[in-house]
Design a binder for these strands. Structure first.
Length: 326
DNA sequence: TTCCGGATGG
DNA sequence: CCATCTGGAA
């Protein structure tokens, strides 16, 4: 289905030609040297980096990723770890359910795919903890495949540059997805899959234009084209950006819902409980008395413990003591 | 005080 | 739609 606004389509395609070259040059000069970039990580390592990065700033992810990959270099290794080890190693990255899903994912990859991460979208998106974003990111960044990668940063950048408006909260709109597909550069015949990480000798020298574009758009959104305070003075696309040309209308107006505070929420309580378990001796049970001292609101505490139990993040012993799952 | 690379599963 | 986690920086 073609875009309703034809003039917009042609305009976008025109801007894209400039944007591709500008962003590629910017990426070559400015990309942060993260350890899973430039062909230095296996596809599995790239997947781990994406899962960790979904929830945490890169600067905090890097040391966790390095320790994690050293402990469990591939899916088979992670599949063989105990759940308690995995939860402990996840540390304070946050959203520990994702650590469990990553291990479930590793077990599926190990058992069903012989330890090799699939390289097709349908197989990837069927893995535990892998949705559209992560599947696309793995195909592009790890396998060098040509596919749009759409996360919040990408939506914000593309919407600003090509449409001149802020992207809206909630799921990506059909128009945003179409835009991401429309402006994705074509890859030359010699730029096909395989140029990325994983196979290819690890030089990481030449990535396909679509791969560079995907990474560069995300990077631009992370460090320059930020939500509330974009650094247009340092943006390689500033002179072709429709949002800048329009005077940044409605800058930062994106969320429909005000952000939930953290203090006093179940999320904080769950974090406190899990952190106590991480610091208990390996395999030990945290006695009920110690558990009750963790949070003054007994009803909330017990509700959170029950939800952690349901999530598989801890086990409740008969006397009310808690321990990490085996 | 608000913001960060908010995606995934229910 | 809704819940999920953390801590440092701006």
């Amino acid at each position: 289905m073609p875009d309703i606004d034809d003039s917009d389509e042609f305009g976008a395609a025109d801007l894209a030609a400039h944007a591709h070259a500008r962003l590629a040059a910017w990426w070559a000069a400015e990309a942060r040297d993260l350890p899973w970039r430039f062909g230095r990580a296996t596809p599995w390592g790239v997947l781990v980096s994406e899962v960790m990065s979904q929830q945490t700033q890169m600067s905090r992810v890097v040391p966790y990723w390095e320790a994690w990959m050293e402990a469990w270099p591939d899916a088979a290794a992670l599949a063989g770890a105990s759940t308690a080890e995995v939860i402990t190693a996840w540390g304070r990255l946050g959203y520990p359910r994702r650590a469990l899903r990553l291990q479930e994912c590793a077990r599926v990859v190990a058992e069903r795919y012989g330890g090799r991460l699939p390289n097709d979208y349908d197989a990837l998106v069927a893995l535990p903890g892998v949705g559209d974003y992560t599947a696309s990111a793995v195909i592009s960044f790890a396998y060098g495949g040509r596919i749009p990668v759409v996360d919040t940063n990408v939506r914000r950048v593309l919407s600003r540059v090509f449409l001149g408006v802020e992207s809206r909260g909630g799921a990506a709109s059909a128009r945003e997805r179409r835009l991401a597909a429309d402006v994705l550069p074509e890859d030359g015949p010699e730029d096909g899959p395989g140029g990325g990480a994983g196979d290819g000798g690890g030089s990481g020298s030449r990535e396909a234009p679509s791969v560079v574009w995907n990474q560069a758009v995300m990077e631009l959104g992370a460090v320059v084209c930020t939500a509330k305070a974009p650094l247009c003075g340092r943006c390689p696309l500033a002179d072709v950006c429709r949002f800048a040309a329009a005077g940044l209308p409605g800058l930062g107006e994106r969320r429909t819902r005000p952000r939930q505070r953290f203090q006093g929420t179940d999320r904080q309580v769950r974090g406190i409980v899990l952190d106590a378990l991480r610091h208990a001796p390996a395999g030990a049970t945290l006695p009920r008395g110690r558990v009750e001292a963790l949070w003054p609101d007994r009803a909330q505490l017990d509700a959170c413990i029950a939800s952690l139990d349901e999530d598989g993040l801890l086990c409740i012993e008969p006397g009310g003591g808690l321990r990490l799952p085996a």
